[in-house]
Design a protein around this nucleic acid. Structure first.
Lengths: 193, 193
DNA sequence: TTTAAATTAGTACCAGGTATTAATCGAGAA
DNA sequence: TTCTCGATTAATACCTGGTACTAATTTAAA
């Protein structure tokens, strides 16, 4: 690869490193037929870190302890609640919730809000989800505000059926039917349902 | 960490490096209160490579294998993948994933692992979940290791039906059918389906 | 107490850099 | 034609996180 001017070379360089972060300056220098120093100047101008750091950050991405879903008890902010009847919560969507290549909120964040709301409105110490039947109606974009509303449909012993709908600006984007079980103290200790 | 004999130290060392390949010999030496040379002898006996090589191999696993997929956006760790066919991932459950009053993993974490795996195995730039039908068979306790397996059942145009099952020690704890749509470039820009 | 194993120390060397200063090259302007 | 400036290359000192090897020292067991 030769006869490239500075601009072309740097463009190509950025591209190459984007899809192969393992390339060292030496390899790049050979590839472009320039000196190592030139590659280093290029990287500096483009603010691209050295190979070891690039590799490390790739490794970190997959290795980092998963915290993609927040750890709070209720995902979003509780707006209103009437135990065993209904409840609603609001979730502001942020950059860490969207897909890499599009600013669309990842499904499990929407699910998490709905699920945690369904579990929260049950009047018991511990409730677990048994099943769910969900539909995503519309993709949600970064920055949109999710309003989830949950309503208890039926109660049989410790089995609750809850309908959750989530809207953005009054437009329905998600709907789900959750079956949630209330656990009693003994069941919790036994670790079973 | 001290008063460990050689055998205990090496055991612990292997464990530490297994779940954190980024630790340098210096950090390990401090941790165990021994010299760097001792750590190096240990690594040599255990045939564990240096930090940079460990990091590189972690980066390689997830990078070269599934470059185009948003595999790095997966919840849990990708184990294997065959685009448009199947894939599996493992998720170690941690304290921040459990309910406040019981050490039971919250449903949406299990869902998130399954959902992100379902989306990741699709061979497209962007995929979004359309609907899901899920059942939680058994509660999962803190510390248990979730193995999710996804298998593509059918493909119609851009509509994929994927079956995901999650197990703990070979015991099924979650099952779900996901309908996922592959988005094309134009659709992404329009922000809709 | 002697001996062997375990540990620590020290040295030379390596890859893949950073950071800095200086030299050289090539093309267009005065 | 010479001057000048941006681009490129060279050279040097230093860094991290090692390998490989030799040697000394410490500890524990026979």
């Amino acid at each position: 690869m030769k006869n490239l001017n500075k601009e072309e070379r740097q463009e190509k360089l950025a591209q190459l490193l984007a899809d192969d972060p393992f390339l060292t300056d030496k390899k790049l220098a050979d590839k472009f037929g320039v000196s190592i120093q030139t590659i280093r100047l290029d990287r500096r101008e483009l603010e691209i870190p050295e190979a070891r750091k690039r590799i490390k950050s790739v490794a970190r991405q997959t290795y980092s302890k998963v915290k993609s879903v927040q750890s709070r008890e209720i995902i979003g902010e509780l707006v209103e609640i009437e135990l065993n009847k209904f409840g609603s919560s609001v979730l502001e969507t942020t950059a860490d919730m969207v897909l890499e290549k599009a600013e669309i909120v990842r499904g499990h964040h929407i699910f998490a809000q709905a699920n945690s709301l369904a579990v929260a409105i049950i009047d018991t110490d511990v409730a677990v989800t048994g099943s769910a039947n969900i539909r995503y109606q519309q993709p949600v974009s970064l920055g949109e505000r999710l309003l989830a509303t949950a309503e208890v449909q039926s109660i049989e012993d410790n089995k609750f059926t809850i309908e959750v709908t989530t809207k953005v600006n009054d437009k329905m984007i998600f709907q789900g039917e959750f079956v949630v079980f209330a656990l009693e103290e003994e069941e919790i200790r036994e670790g079973g349902r």
